[in-house]
């Protein structure tokens, strides 16, 4: 087994152990914990009042926009990691201008995107209606 394979076998072992640990303690806990269900205990906490309606309703779309913007930036970061990793090797090989301009161009495009989202007001958490402005 090479070191490369061993690394990902370790990841598998660690994740399996994490799942097994939580599962094992929960199963073992079955023998020591009580189980006396009742209607009151099974209702959700709403400050002691009887819960009104379900919690699965429409929520604010601001979260959705944040998630969209995050998705774009996160994918860009994932794409930049390989270039960033070889940056110093290219600088040592005397190709600093090339790799610098490439990376700066890419980051520049990202910044334009950030400026666009900012300008559109999608980064403002508190939104105003037009007649308030």
């Amino acid at each position: 087994m090479s070191e490369f394979e061993f690394g990902f076998v370790s990841v598998l072992v660690f994740l399996s152990l994490a799942f097994l640990f939580v599962f094992g303690v929960l199963v073992a806990g079955r023998f020591v914990r009580p189980r006396r269900p009742s209607r009151e205990k099974a209702s959700v906490y709403e400050c002691g009042e009887r819960p009104i309606g379900k919690a699965w309703f429409n929520f604010n779309p601001r979260f959705y926009i944040i998630a969209l913007v995050f998705l774009i930036f996160d994918v860009e970061i994932a794409f930049t990691f390989p270039v960033a990793t070889v940056f110093s090797a290219w600088v040592k090989a005397g190709k600093a201008a090339l790799v610098y301009s490439e990376l700066a161009l890419f980051v520049g495009i990202l910044l334009v995107g950030l400026a666009y989202v900012w300008r559109k007001g999608d980064l403002d958490w508190l939104k105003k209606l037009d007649h308030d402005a």
């Binding site: 303690v25 929960l26 073992a28 806990g29 020591v32 914990r33 009580p34 189980r35 006396r36 269900p37 209607r39 205990k41 099974a42 209702s43 959700v44 819960p51 379900k54």
Partner: peptide, 11 residues
């Protein structure tokens, strides 16, 4: 660990 493991009815 010794506390009851509750799952809300509507969950």
């Amino acid at each position: 660990v010794m506390k009851e493991d509750l799952v809300p009815a509507g969950a």
